[in-house]
Amino acid sequence: MVRLLPSKERLSKGSRVSAEELAADVAVDAVASEQTAPTDAIIDDDMPESDLVFNVSDLSVYYGDFRAVRDVNMAIRPKEITALIGPSGCGKSTVLRSFNRMNDLIPTARVEGTLLYRGVDLYDERVDPVEVRRRIGMVFQKPNPFPKSIYDNVAYGPRVAGQKKGLDDVVESSLKKAALWDEVKDRLNESAIGMSGGQQQRLSIARAIAGDPEVLLMDEPCSALDPIATARIEELMAELKDEYTILIVTHNMQQAARVSDRTAFYSVEVDEKSDRRTGILVEYTNTEKLFSNPDDERTENYITGRFG
C-alpha cells in the first residue's frame, strides 16, 4: 500500500533536476497537498518495510536510571529528509544519536526497544558500532574541524577505514558535493581552523560524506551559523537528498518546513511527582501536513508559537 505524493515520486526518480525545477516541484507539491485530502497522514505502513532505511519501534533511551525519551515509533524512508523538531530537552538529539550509536560514547546510556537499520537490529550485540558509523555519518551542531589540513579532514574517514589509494579523488568529489571545492581547491593543505564557520560546517559535511555513507545525521547543523551560511547548508541538503537519506535535528521550525519531507514533533512530558522530564514523540507525518494541519493539539500549539 504505497501512497506517495506524486511530486515525491518524481523527485526520487528524476536523478538530474535543476534547482529551478526542484523549487517548482516543491511549489507544486505544496499546492497538491493542499488540494488532496488533509488526512493524508503518512503512517508507518505506508511503505513496505523492506524499503525502509530505519524502522524504530518502542525506542526508549536511558541515561542511568533517567529515561530521556520513551516509546518512539518512526519509519525513515530512503533519500528523504526527515526533521526532528521540538522544545529543548525533548530528546530529539538523543534519538538522533541512537541512529548511529553515538550514545554508546556516554557510559551510562542505554537503549530499549528496537531500531532496525535495513532490517538489522542496530543494538544487536554482534553489531560493530564503528561499521555502523561508517554507513551512518554524523554532522554536529558546532563545526568541529580537526586541527589538520583541509585535505586531511576530508580524507579522515576513508583513511581510518583503511583506504590508501584514490584519496585525491575522494577529497575532490566530497568537497564538490559539499559545495566547498571552488573555495578551497587552491589551499587544500592549509589548516581547516582558519576557515569561516559556514565553511567549517560544509567541511564537516564533506568529511561525513567522504566515507560514502548511506545516511547523514545532522544535529542542529546551522545553529552556530549566520543566515547566509544557513541558506547554503539548506541548499546543499536539498542536493544531497538525491544520494543520501538525511535526518536533521533543528530548533528552527522554518528550517524544518523548508528542507524536510517529513517532520517528527517531539515534546516533553513532566512527571508531577518526581519532576522528571521525558521526551515523547507527539506527531510524525509529512512536513506540509504537520505545519498546516497537525492532528495533535500540542503540535498545533508549538508551531503557532503558543508553547516552547
Partner: peptide, 10 residues
C-alpha cells in the same frame, strides 16, 4: 574532536 572522529567511523 573525539566525537567528530567517532562520527565518521573511527
Amino acid at each position: 574532536l573525539k566525537q567528530g572522529a567517532y562520527g565518521v567511523g573511527a
